[in-house]
Design a protein around this nucleic acid. Structure first.
Length: 442
RNA sequence: GCCGAUUUAGCUUAGCUGGUGGAGCGUGGGACUGUUAAUCCCAAGGUCGUGGGUUCGAGCCCCACAAUCGGCGCCA
């Protein structure tokens, strides 16, 4: 067990006392008679000083020789000292090297390895991801990520949503079939799920308000700073809700995440040079709604070539969002641009009742959602119209046959939200082991 | 799938009109009793991504391949 954490020592609550610290050596420097290390644990760093006259020749020599990322247990006295970063320093009385680092294989993530990456991800850092995770930047990213996950859970649980799990092996597609990962399944074919949604709709009549945070898999050969093949998907489904009400949940959730980060992770965000004023803006302001037609007109007035019926690709999204200072909802897409499960607008059959939430600063779409096609008659019509096979979707059709009700939901790209709110250069920065079309290791 | 770029020591890189590849960090050795990515001295460490070609001579020019990176389409 460990009883004393470095952050607590830095707050001053152990001043003048002797403590036992456990951690890893972050930096090491010194002379023949006095040696300094910066000790790191999950909570922070502190300078520790050892003198030859206090430790004895042998122990001092071992202390001096310990390389970066060696793990140690040390006993020492807590002093207030302005010369040490953080204002506190440990005067070492004894130290044991627990996990020594071999000089033949020193810790490879050196300052120079970090220099040109500037928070980005060089091939070397991606190859050594398992070691890169313990650098201060990645540690902070993982802590911010944890707060985002926590905020999503607390948002839905405060509103009496039930957390619900769907299978990751599935038989059919949600999005376009070309982006499915096919896996062998005892002589048959199965696929990795692209979304929790269809199975969530099955439980909607039971739970009425449900959500999840789970991985989704899409075999897109995308090479962008916004895509992963395995990404974390926060999805929700609500019975008796319309498009406007579902959007309201989405807006509140994103604002709640922003607020939570300001409360819990301001220091970490500042260390990424993130402007907290932007996060406050995302937390405090309402997000405008804009119909697809309006977006198309705006783009056309800017001289962008776009035909009605086209989905908005990223180049157009980017132009559209560059003047946005908060996320914007885009609603009422043409039916032809969206999959069968979106409910056709009863007021105009050319549109579906859906919405995308576009993040500002070029981070792209962070939410996609809307009302579902909910009557048996309409779902059969839409499935046939889109040329989707009925058989693997029979369970989905049954949901409509037995007491279908209006309902809907959305999916939020958790990693994209993390990327946007931290101001990351690339979505890879916010997930411990990123998976893209060219990398599944380490 | 398409377009563009890159590949030199463990890492980050310099390398001019083609003439025997330099440095910083890290590692090892040495000096130094308060360092802040410590400093100073010394050392080891390179078939220059792979294969072929041009040339008296290729890290540099040409061809092919590979890996990686960036962008696009698609999406969260």
């Amino acid at each position: 067990m460990k009883n004393v954490w470095i952050s607590d020592v830095q707050t001053g609550q152990f001043d003048g006392q002797s403590v036992e610290l456990k951690g890893w050596i972050k930096r090491s420097r010194g002379s023949s008679k006095i040696h300094f290390i910066v000790l790191r644990d999950s909570t922070g760093t502190i300078q520790c000083v050892g003198k030859r006259e206090d430790l004895g020749d042998e122990s001092f020599q071992n202390f001096k020789a310990a390389l970066i990322e060696s793990s140690v247990i040390l006993h020492g006295h807590v002093n207030v000292d302005e010369r040490a970063e953080g204002g506190h320093e440990i005067s070492i009385q004894s130290i044991s090297i627990i996990g020594a680092v071999d000089a033949e294989r020193p810790f490879p993530i050196t300052e120079s390895a970090m220099v040109s990456s500037d928070g980005g991800e060089t091939e070397f850092l991606l190859d050594n991801r398992h070691l890169y995770l313990r650098t201060s930047r990645m540690t902070k990213m993982l802590q911010v990520r944890s707060s985002v996950f926590g905020a999503i859970h607390s948002y839905f649980r405060q509103r009496k949503f039930t957390e619900y799990q769907a299978p990751n092996f599935v038989a059919g597609a949600v999005e376009g079939g070309s982006t499915l990962f096919e896996v062998p399944y005892f002589g048959k074919k199965a696929y990795l799920t692209q979304s929790w949604q269809l199975y969530a709709e099955a439980a909607m009549p039971a739970l009425e308000r449900l959500y999840t945070i789970a991985p989704s898999f899409r075999a897109e050969k995308s090479r962008t700073r916004r895509h992963l093949t395995e990404f974390w998907h926060a999805e929700m489904e609500v019975a008796w809700a319309n498009n406007a009400e579902i959007m309201q949940y989405g807006e509140e959730l994103v604002r709640h995440i922003s607020t939570t980060l300001l409360e819990e992770r301001s220091e970490e965000l500042k260390s990424f040079d993130r402007d907290l004023g932007l996060i406050e803006r995302y937390a405090e302001n309402q997000y405008p709604r804009m119909r697809y037609d309006e977006a198309v007109e705006t783009l056309q007035s800017m001289g962008i070539e776009i035909e009605w019926g086209q989905d908005l690709d990223y180049s157009k999204e980017k132009v559209l969002t560059q003047d946005f200072d908060v996320p914007h909802f885009l609603t009422h897409y043409p039916k032809v641009a969206k999959p069968f499960y979106h409910r056709v607008d009863p007021d105009d059959g050319n549109y579906v009742l859906c919405h995308d939430l576009l993040a500002p600063e070029g981070y792209g779409e962070i939410i996609g959602g809307g009302e579902r096609t909910w009557t048996e008659e309409e779902i059969l019509h839409r499935i046939d119209e889109e040329g989707v096979p009925r058989e693997p979707n029979q369970f989905y059709i049954d949901i409509r046959s037995y007491g279908g009700v209006p309902h809907g939901g959305f999916g939020l790209g958790v990693d994209r939200v993390c990327s946007w709110l931290t101001g990351a250069e690339h979505i890879r920065e916010v997930i411990p082991f990123p998976r893209d079309s060219r990398r599944v290791t380490p």
